Simulated assay, not measured.
Amino acid sequence: MHTIDRLSAEEFDASVKDLANLLVDAVDSGASVGFLTPFGHEAAAAWWRAQAPAVADGSLVVWTCRDGSGINATVSLALARKPNARHRAEIVKLMVHRDARGQGLSRALLAAAERGALAAGAGLLLLDTETGSTAEHVYLTGGWTRYGIVPDYAGSPDGTLQDCSFFYKHLTAAG
């Protein structure tokens, strides 16, 4: 049984260790989420702790998926701060532990983030992902529109430059 919850600032602080474990697993399994190997738990926890002010002020919203063993997936929503951009937000750090993949957790977390975006007044979502990745397939089949590919945009965990696909999705209250 999996439960998806939006983390309060206090819950976020208490979840940093589990979130760090998930981030390390993502990097170790080859996910292009902004970090290079070797990447350890201390660095992962420090990165998550650095997000705490944004979680506390509401500009970063974090959802987690838990099972009996702890956090096995997460997604974050970065709300735009500029006055002329408050209608949009960015999906960041969608990660599913390698042992929990293939269970629909990405789609469930994306649905939670989409509902959260609408509740915050953001009807346009943006994201980027490695071209050709499993994540890209999730977006292509989940109602997202790819609007471009940038060659050599980001490095994979081993530092190899990879193409990146950029997506958007217009949200409606009806889904």
Rank of each mutant, 00 (worst) to 15 (best):
M1R: 12
H2V: 13
H2E: 00
I4F: 09
D5I: 11
R6D: 00
E10W: 07
E10K: 13
F12H: 03
D13W: 07
V16M: 04
A20D: 06
V24D: 03
V24P: 03
A26E: 02
D28C: 08
D28N: 15
G30L: 06
S32A: 15
F35M: 02
T37I: 00
P38V: 08
E42V: 01
A44L: 00
A44S: 00
W47P: 09
R49W: 06
A50K: 04
A50N: 03
P53A: 08
P53F: 05
A54F: 15
A56W: 07
A56R: 13
D57S: 06
G58M: 01
G58I: 05
S59K: 11
S59G: 11
L60F: 15
L60I: 14
L60P: 09
G68W: 03
G70Y: 07
L77P: 01
L77I: 11
A78N: 12
L79E: 07
P83T: 13
P83V: 15
A85R: 11
R86G: 00
R86K: 10
H87F: 01
H87G: 02
A89S: 14
E90A: 15
V92K: 10
K93P: 03
L94R: 04
R98A: 12
D99Y: 04
D99L: 05
A100R: 06
G102Y: 14
L105D: 04
S106D: 11
L109W: 09
L110H: 05
L110C: 12
A111E: 15
A111H: 12
A113H: 02
A113S: 00
A113D: 09
A117L: 05
L118E: 02
G123V: 12
L125A: 02
L126D: 01
L126S: 09
L126A: 06
D128Y: 12
T129Y: 08
E130H: 05
T131V: 04
T131G: 03
G132L: 02
T134R: 01
E136P: 06
L140Q: 11
T141W: 02
G142C: 09
G148K: 04
I149M: 11
I149P: 05
Y153C: 15
Y153E: 14
Y153V: 12
A154S: 10
S156E: 07
P157L: 05
L161E: 04
C164H: 01
S165H: 00
F166I: 08
Y168H: 13
Y168R: 07
H170G: 04
H170K: 00
L171N: 09
T172I: 14
T172D: 15
A174T: 14
